[in-house]
């Protein structure tokens, strides 16, 4: 099965009424590959990412994970069952963490495995301890989300997603809501996942991170993929004018922020 791509997006289109947000996007991601999606705000990055687990259904087009179509057209009940199975294999991390505030860190991590995989409390606890150790959050296992910093919340959110043992992880600007000094601890966790060859699709504004961690960079603008390639090419020698403009503006902002 090495010849079928791990993740395949075929002719993805999405419109909100008149507004075309994704215009016929096709791309593939290989197993173990780490892909960054960059582009200006409103270019459709989140929409594309959220189409992968059918959180924002496409208007047309297909998303295929290991040969299985994620966004199958099925009668309601069958679709529900199918999509819940698919989503268990696809972890997602949000900009605003979306931890469950009424549950402790431990419970945030164990809820889905207990409910969906029938883990016993003891096994689920062990799993939570493992996953939280992995993101360096063991000490806060019995805290509530409100008692954590943004960076800690995001690390717990990552542990929560990993506890379902996903095949693919999606990150939608996981560090954008964080204070600058908390970005690094989350980036370190993501780097660690990269070293473990987790397949990841990462929407990010952090060009440095994309350049150092990702195998491939996809630049989107106006609902299309303008340019894609290894970071060395996209960042150093972009062929498209739109990419050049975006990078120039972004790097200027960086310089601005550094002052």
């Amino acid at each position: 099965m090495t010849d079928t791509p791990f993740v395949q997006i075929r002719h993805a289109q999405k419109a909100y009424g008149e507004l075309e947000v994704l215009k016929d996007i096709s791309l593939t991601v290989e197993r173990g590959e780490i892909v960054a999606i960059i582009g200006p705000s409103g270019s459709g990055k989140s929409t594309l990412l959220r189409a992968i687990n059918d959180l924002d259904p496409l208007t047309s087009g297909e998303v295929i994970l290991e040969g299985v179509q994620v966004n199958k057209q099925l009668p309601h009940r069958q679709y529900e069952k199918h999509i819940n199975e698919m989503r268990q294999q696809i972890g997602m991390v949000f900009q605003h963490f979306n931890l469950f505030p009424h549950l402790t860190v431990r419970e945030n991590v164990t809820m889905a495995p207990k409910l969906l995989k029938g883990l016993s409390s003891a096994d689920a606890d062990k799993l939570a301890e493992e996953q939280l150790a992995h993101v360096g959050m063991s000490e806060r296992i019995d805290y509530y989300p409100s008692q954590l910093s943004g960076g800690q919340k995001q690390r717990v959110a990552i542990a929560r997603a990993l506890a379902m043992k996903p095949k693919l992880m999606l990150f939608d600007e996981a560090t954008s809501a964080l204070d600058p000094e908390l970005v690094e601890e989350v980036n370190l966790v993501m780097k660690k996942l990269a070293e473990e060859h987790m397949t990841m699709i990462i929407v990010t504004h952090e060009m440095d991170f994309a350049a150092s961690v990702c195998d491939r960079v996809i630049f989107m603008d106006g609902g299309v993929v303008v340019e894609e390639g290894p970071p060395s090419v996209v960042f150093q020698n972009p062929t498209q004018e739109r990419t050049q403009n975006f990078l120039r503006k972004h790097l200027a902002q960086y310089a601005e922020g550094a002052k």
Partner: peptide, 20 residues
């Protein structure tokens, strides 16, 4: 975002409502 996070983990609509 709460229901969304729950659905993303694979919970059904009903489970997401009840538990989250």
């Amino acid at each position: 975002g709460q229901a969304e996070a729950a659905r993303t983990l694979g919970l059904s609509r009903v489970q997401a409502f009840q538990k989250v």
